[in-house]
Each structure stands twice: as structure tokens, then as C-alpha cells.
Design a protein around this nucleic acid. Structure first.
Lengths: 346, 346
DNA sequence: CTGAAAGCGCTTACAG
DNA sequence: CTGAAAGCGCTTACAG
């Protein structure tokens, strides 16, 4: 027994042909139960595993998915948006449950991430995660689609976008949060987050925010909008809040388009001696693990990442099988913590 | 052009044999530069990628590594220790830089994780991450070693352990932190974390803690040690602190063997109306991202996860190439934040 | 510097 | 229910 055992070794030990071994190991009913059992026992005993490369090559199917996490070129080398991390667990486990292996790669938005994985037959399909400029990634998505690559992405469900997405109902999330803030008696709500096609998720959250405002008969004041916050980092949130104060606009609440932005904003508020939530309410979006450990604990919008991961994998697998699939929107839900304060009156 | 292009297609277009195409694409100097360039250009134009399965099968080398994150069976389905997450980025990037693909899988400690990946020729080696009972995993490690599987693990560097490890200098980290606490005037330091061979990392931290105590001429009081904290979760930290208080022992500091434990302990302290750090100092270990957002921000021990990831990959690759490798210990460093308070005197 | 040929370890029609 | 044979798409001695 030098090197790994092959199906020929098993065949020899079992006294059958190699083809029968192959069938038995795939549990083909055309092999008698007895033989099947016997072969499987020998395989186990010899510690035999079907060679994945040979099998994939022959079947033209890798039984592997690739998870591509793409980040802004600007972002720090070691920084991963903690939000995606929560999804990672769910995706990994769902793949395992389905018998698929998962390749993972972190890509700069600038790189040629659309290539490789499926072309080289490494994976049967791609799962795409990552913020970053949507208008940049859209072209890549189109190319992927043109090449017939199977892929699903997490993100805003946008009309006429290439491929299919699973995303949170960002409009609803934005609306719910602003309604909550209004219910708390807040009237001048600053919004931090770029609201353009570059950041469709932030845009939707802003749209929901505006809808809630208008429904309450309140104006949408552009002076309260920090529109140049495209990246989701604490630094950007910090600066956004400083800008807001530098402009001299009055506000009694801050709704940040992500938790990281909100946490940065809270720190700026603290540095400026503004009390949260006594003077200003702060709200975020995502419910990353550290949201509950912020000071004060952050009120935010949860997205069901467990379900999201499952849907992403399931949709991709369906697509690979040639079944029809559609984009899906997951409901958003508020988590009320202390950063917005309590209702002022009954 | 139906289906993906193969090397035969390229050969046809270039007017050479398929073998020459294969050589040219691997950049073999035995093919004339001209021909090489021409073939590479055609390949690019046809969007050709070498089939990884065929290549791996033929070369008997997958150019793929597998990252196995193993967790306690007890831990929540979606919970991943945030500490490992920081390492993930570094590992992924290092693999990419070396031209290796990375498979990822989360395994329950109870599963047969030692099998599969290398036997099925999916990966050339394994990277093992995860706390959990070391005495349980050790047997698996031995089996891996007996099978000739290449692997490296993150964790305590233990005398006579199977395989090689990259880990933090936990003894040093424990010593530094206790010295810091002592320097702050604390004398009754509770330690949360199981100190046995089941948790060699916690054990080393405890050993360092004890060494610092003894060096200062202070006793190591077993009453101050919560020894049944084997899992690294906030809940366990919370309970540990409650136990400590229930026992009625006095303490002016808590050194938790991990940040998650420390954060749980701080919450219990807060619930009990004990002020941190005014009445009790709290320290952790790991420096997970949320440590700085805890209330108060947590003083802890940083481990260089970027370097750790790089070393893990580098060691594994060396091992695969048959070069000699050794376990390595990374230095530990304190991050002083507010949870321990300031020096009482000058 | 290039080509013809063998073979990596499987899976799967095809024939019996 | 089982076996002999072809072939998945490469890489690499071997020969020229």
C-alpha cells in the first residue's frame, strides 16, 4: 500500500471489477446490496476516498462553490466587514450540508475576480459578498452573466440588475427606523450614507427614511444628509458627524446607514461632549456583533444572516441545476437598544 | 466554440501541438518566447483557463489548502469566535499570494474532520483553527500525523504534541497582564479560565499569571481561580463572575483568559452594581474587534493575527515541499484601555 | 525547441 | 447485476 489507495486496490481486495467498485461507492442500486456493503466496508478499512480531481474531471462537475468577498481597494488589509462574517458561518454550513465544498477568496474590487473560478472548473458557481461601488461591480456582473457563469450575490435587489440577488428589504428597514425615531419625538434626523446608484443598499435605506418622514408630514432636509459617506467604516462615520457639526445644522438624531458608521458617529459625538441618547439619538443598520457592546448599546436593524446564507446557497444550487430562480428580499427588523433613548411621553 | 475551450482549441488556433500549448501556458522556457507569447495571447483571447481538475489529477497536487475551523459542539450554530475571524483575512490573502486556493469548513469537534480533505486529494494540507478540548483533538492530530497528512495548527505550543503549531506566547501574555494589574495596585486578582491540559492556551496564561504573582511575592490563591470555564463565551464569563461573588471571595481585579469571558464578566459586574474599573479592574486576552467597544473599553493582550496567518500558511507550504519546519511562538503584547483603570500613584 | 503518446483516477454508456 | 473500454483535459518523460 504505497501512496493512496485507488479504486483498483479496492477492486482487487473485493474480487470485483473497478467499475463495480465505482458504482458501489456512489451507492448505485444496480450493484447488489451485498456487494455494495462489502465494497464500502473495504473502502472504509483501507481509508479510501474517491479522488475528487478525477471524479470532477470525469463528471465535469466540481461539487464546489466559491465565496468571493470583495472589498474596497481603500479598506485596510486585515479588515473585513464584520457583517459578512456572520453570513460566512451560515454559508459554510449550508454548503457542507449539501455536500459541496467551499472555496473562499477575498478580492479587491479592482481585481479580475470574475474570471477564474468557474472557467478553471474549480467551482460550479459563485457567491458574491461585498459592498463597494455597485456601478463598478455591475459591469463585472454583466460579464459573468454573458459568460454563463452561475452566481448569486448578497445586496440590494435592484431593478434590471444582472444575475440574481438575495438582500434585505432596505427600504423597509429605513422606514421602520425613522418611524421609531419619530415615535421617540425626534424631528431633525441626520442621515449618514451615500444615496446614489453607487451604493444601492444605502440608497434604499435613505429612501425608506424619506418615506417615513413624508408620511409624518415632515420635510426631507438635504442639509441633514451626509451624502459622501460611501464606505462603511468607523472613520467615515466619525468624519461625517464632524462635517455635520461643522455645517452648523441642528439635529436631534443620527441615522447611519451601517453600524460601523453609527459607531464612528457615536465616538465623534462623545468627543464633542454630546450625550447619546439624552441629546442626540443614534441608530445604525446591520446589527454586527459589536453593536450590543457599543456605548450606549446601539439600536439598529437586524438582517437574518442565517437565513440569508441558506438562501444564497440554495438559490445558487438551483441555478446550477438549471431550475428557475428569482431574487429575494428578506424582511428587516428593528433591535431596540439604548442609543436612541426611551419614548419621551406615553 | 461550444463549452469551455481546451488546450486543443488553443493548439488548433496557434497551429502547434497541444503539448506545446501546455508548456507555453506553464511558461516553460523550453518553448520559444515568441511561441509562448502567441499562445498566451490566444488563450487570453479565448478566455481559456487551465482545467484545475485535470491539472491536479495529472500532477498529483491540488495547489489548494483547506482551513478547518473547529468549534465546540456546545457552541451556538451561527457563532464563530471573532478572534479566528481576524486570522481568516490574513490566511486567505497569503494563500492567494502564493497561488493556492483555500477551501474552508467549520467542523464540530465531534466530526471526522481529520479525514477527507487530503485523502480525497482536495487539498495538499490543512490549517487547523479552533479552541475546544485539546485532549480530544490531540488524538485526531496523532491520526493525521500517522496518515502523513500535512497540517499546521494555531494554538498553544505544547511539548511533545503531534504536528507543528503557531501560537502566541501565552505564558508571556499572562505574565505581562498580571504585572500590569499589580502595577496598578491590584492585589487580589481573580482568574477566569480552565487551567488544565484540556485548554493548554488558558493553562499557559494562568501559568504566566502565577509566575508574575510569585515574582511579586504574592500567593496564588485557588479561591480566586474559576477553573471550570473551558468555553470561551460571554455566558461562561458571566456565570464565572457570579460564582466568584457567590463564593464570597474578595477581589479587586479579574483577569479573564479571553475577551469574550472578560466581556461577560463585565456585564455581570455591571448587573451587580460593581463599578469597573473603580472597584474592580477587568482584563481580557485576544483583542477581538469588539474589545475596544466594550464599556469600558477592554484592556487586553493582542496577538498579531496578520503575522500568525502568514506564518501558518508559510509553514504548511514548506512542510508540503518537504522542507523542515518547526513550531513558532509569537510575542504577546498588552493593549491598555480603560477597563483596568489608571495607575493609582506616580 | 517541438510533437506523439502514455497515464493521472475516476464515471458511464455499452454489451452481456 | 457485472465487466471491458472509452474518455474527461491535462502534464511530462521520450524521441527527434
Amino acid at each position: 500500500m504505497k501512496g493512496k489507495a485507488t479504486s483498483f486496490d479496492i477492486a482487487y481486495h473485493a474480487g470485483v471489477s473497478q467499475s463495480t467498485v465505482s458504482r458501489a461507492l456512489r451507492n448505485s442500486p444496480s450493484v447488489s446490496l451485498d456487494t455494495r456493503r462489502r465494497i464500502q466496508a473495504i473502502a472504509k478499512q483501507l481509508n479510501y476516498k474517491v479522488d475528487k480531481n478525477a471524479s470532477s474531471l470525469r463528471r465535469q462537475h466540481a461539487t464546489t462553490l466559491a465565496l468571493l468577498l470583495f472589498e474596497d481597494p481603500t479598506s485596510d488589509d486585515s479588515l473585513i466587514n464584520p457583517f459578512f462574517l456572520s453570513m460566512l458561518g451560515s454559508i459554510t454550513r449550508t454548503c457542507a450540508r449539501q455536500g459541496y465544498d467551499l472555496l473562499i477568496s477575498f478580492q479587491q474590487l479592482s481585481e479580475d475576480w470574475h474570471a477564474d473560478y468557474q472557467d478553471a472548473h474549480k467551482a460550479d458557481g459563485l457567491i458574491l459578498l461585498g459592498y463597494g461601488d455597485y456601478l463598478v461591480s455591475r459591469d463585472r456582473l454583466r460579464k459573468l452573466e454573458a459568460q454563463g457563469t452561475h452566481f448569486v450575490r448578497w445586496g440590494a435587489v435592484v431593478e434590471g440588475q444582472p444575475g440574481i440577488s438575495v438582500g434585505c428589504d432596505n427600504v423597509q428597514g429605513g422606514r421602520l427606523m425613522t418611524e421609531h425615531l419619530l415615535g421617540l419625538g425626534r424631528r431633525r434626523i441626520a442621515f449618514i450614507g451615500n444615496a446614489s446608484a453607487h451604493c444601492p443598499e444605502f440608497l434604499d435605506r435613505y429612501l425608506g427614511h424619506g418615506a417615513a418622514l413624508r408620511a409624518a408630514g415632515l420635510p426631507v432636509d438635504p442639509a441633514l444628509h451626509v451624502d459622501d459617506a460611501t464606505d462603511s467604516t468607523e472613520e467615515v462615520g466619525y468624519r461625517a458627524l464632524c462635517d455635520l457639526r461643522a455645517r452648523g445644522v441642528a439635529f436631534d438624531a443620527v441615522f447611519a446607514a451601517s453600524d460601523l458608521l453609527a459607531i464612528g458617529a457615536m465616538r465623534a459625538l462623545d468627543d464633542a461632549g454630546v450625550r447619546v441618547p439624552a441629546e442626540v439619538s443614534v441608530a445604525g443598520f446591520d446589527d454586527i456583533p459589536m453593536a450590543r457592546f457599543a456605548t450606549p448599546p446601539l439600536t439598529t436593524v437586524v438582517q437574518n444572516t442565517k437565513l440569508a446564507g441558506e438562501l444564497l446557497v440554495e438559490r445558487l444550487l438551483k441555478q446550477i441545476r438549471g431550475e428557475p430562480v428569482e431574487s429575494t428580499m428578506l424582511p428587516a427588523e428593528l433591535v431596540i437598544r439604548r442609543s436612541c433613548g426611551a419614548r419621551s411621553a406615553a
